[in-house]
Amino acid sequence: MLETPLAIIAEITHRCPLHCAYCSNPLQMASPASELSTRDWEAVFEQSAELGVLHVHLSGGEPLAREDLTQLVNSAHSCGLYTNLITSGIGLSAQRLEVLVKAGLDHIQLSFQDSREDNANWIAGARAHARKLEIAPLIRKSGLAFTVNMVVHRQNLSSLDEMIALAESLMPERLEIAHVQYYGWAWKNLDALLPTREQVLTSLETIAAAQKRLAGKMRIDAVVPDYYARFPKACMGGWGRRQLLIDPAGRTLPCHAATVIPGLCFENVREPLWSGFGRSPRAFRNFAVRTGCRNLVEVAIAVRTTSAVAAVRPS
């Protein structure tokens, strides 16, 4: 029997107004027609809570693209789950925010692509930055827990100080500085995104100084990239240990990238005999796969090509 993870990442849609070159979604995205229904997700939340899951991260794509988002928030909240919306902010208005707060939303994580508008919009493949700046004060005023998420890589690490200053001005409780994780579209664009070792080391110093300076004012969590560590870190804290991901079509995955591993099949929450992910689903019975995961990343690093890559974006 595996321990129950702390959280589920509910990828409720892969639709998104942004087209970030580092998107964690798989290259083969789930079509809108394949998305789980409202009732399917409600059942997932109910069963997750029964199994002991505490958090749900409503993610995407852009979760605001789902018209039933309020109902989903309400359902997760009613099950006692701490409910987090991971969003680009595009599609959020003062009215929609108010409705989501009333539905029981606990936390919003708003992403930024850079502090500089031109580069931010270029990375996002959309004119989104100005809208994010408009929406951030509304989130702050709403009383929800507020995290600003800055995704960093080769193309924006030079403005990390400015990005931290921007986050500070938006007054979230928490800033997440997340180095790109190299799967999905980010893997495809590895050579355009992977920072140099020097950039990574400098960023760690910058982050440590900011953590010290802002202690008690803004908590800063940092996610580092694998490639300059001695060993790859445990992806998402370990194969299905802390979090599980349910994709828009209902597949229960131990991490974002699991579907690329050959020979595995994953249970779908639509299946009538879905056993619930704490209760020996097929993929999770295979403990050997957990230990194989590190090897897989090492092999992937070894075979990666060094050819120049122009940004390939999700459409």
């Binding site: 702390l6 505490l54 958090h55 987090n84 936390h107 827990a145 995290t147 409780e173 969590d221």
Partner: peptide, 9 residues
């Protein structure tokens, strides 16, 4: 009793 907060418990 468990205290829940962003990304933690």
């Amino acid at each position: 009793r468990t205290l829940l907060f962003p990304e933690g418990a």
